[in-house]
């Protein structure tokens, strides 16, 4: 854990999570630095996506899920009773594995969030333009803002989903394998975008692509069977991990 600044946007303390009687996360303690990219890696079923969903309380939607411990964002535990979950998910956006645009126009996809949060029509137009530009999509869709978002390519749909997330001005964006359904060119565009986004957002990304984690992240956490085995600077994790289990996993000796 050396070399990581004490200031953290996300501070996780003694987090334990069960699905029924099955413990999926065990004693997670991690500080995720702000305005950086943190990659979560590990074999399937190791708890990395479960952990990601803890950061915006997506697991609340699962009835058998039971959580203990704290996830603090700017020192406020998001599991405290007085936390407004809708407000929390505005601050902590999420992009999923499969692009999931709403069945409406490109424009309305992005305008949807700001409208719910009662932003004026005039301001919404500015937000749509800005987020489309920031998500590197503007040039490709500026003449078809009224077309259905479902007509876009997979890569464009995923960037639209990122733009939609950005439209409500989150502080943190969670990515759950955002490129696994995309071709290499779209993947490159998303990776470039993530690198740009970290100037303004704290990003946490789950990825099965080891090289992707190495390319785009500043910090990497290796999960195994619900525990964090190693967390540190990505360069160190990929060049010379401290834990043998990390080394064995990233070099393909098990998993």
């Amino acid at each position: 854990m050396s070399g990581i600044n004490d200031f953290a946007d996300i501070k996780v303390e003694d987090l334990n999570l069960w699905y029924g009687s099955n413990q999926a996360l065990q004693d997670i303690n991690i500080k995720i630095p702000s305005k950086s990219v943190t990659a979560l890696i590990g074999p399937s079923g190791c708890g990395k996506s479960t952990f990601l969903r803890c950061i915006n309380r997506m697991n609340d939607l699962i009835k058998v899920c039971h959580i203990e411990g704290r996830v603090k964002i700017d020192n406020k535990n998001i599991y405290d009773e007085d936390v407004d979950v809708v407000e929390l998910r505005k601050r902590v956006g999420m992009v999923f594995q499969k692009p999931n645009p709403f069945p409406m126009s490109v424009y309305d996809n992005i305008a949807y969030g700001p409208k719910i949060h009662k932003v004026s029509k005039k301001d919404i137009k500015g937000i749509v333009d800005k987020t489309l530009q920031d998500s590197a999509l503007y040039g490709e869709v500026s003449d078809r803002l009224d077309s259905s978002a479902l007509d876009l390519s997979g890569g464009q749909q995923q960037r639209l989903c990122i733009a939609r997330t950005m439209a409500v001005e989150p502080e943190i964006i969670l990515f759950d394998e955002p490129c696994s359904a995309l071709d290499p060119i779209s993947t490159n565009k998303i990776e470039d975008l993530i690198l740009k986004l970290k100037e303004d957002y704290t990003i946490v990304i789950v990825t099965h692509n080891m090289q992707q984690a190495a390319r785009i992240s500043d910090y990497t956490a290796f999960f195994l069977m619900g525990e964090i085995i190693e967390f540190g600077e990505t360069n160190q994790i990929f060049e010379n991990p401290e834990e043998k289990r990390t080394e064995d996993y990233i070099t393909g000796r098990f998993g």
Partner: peptide
């Protein structure tokens, strides 16, 4: 193979 860690070294 895009080797990493000790393999790359």
């Amino acid at each position: 193979q895009q080797p990493i860690a000790s393999d790359l070294r």
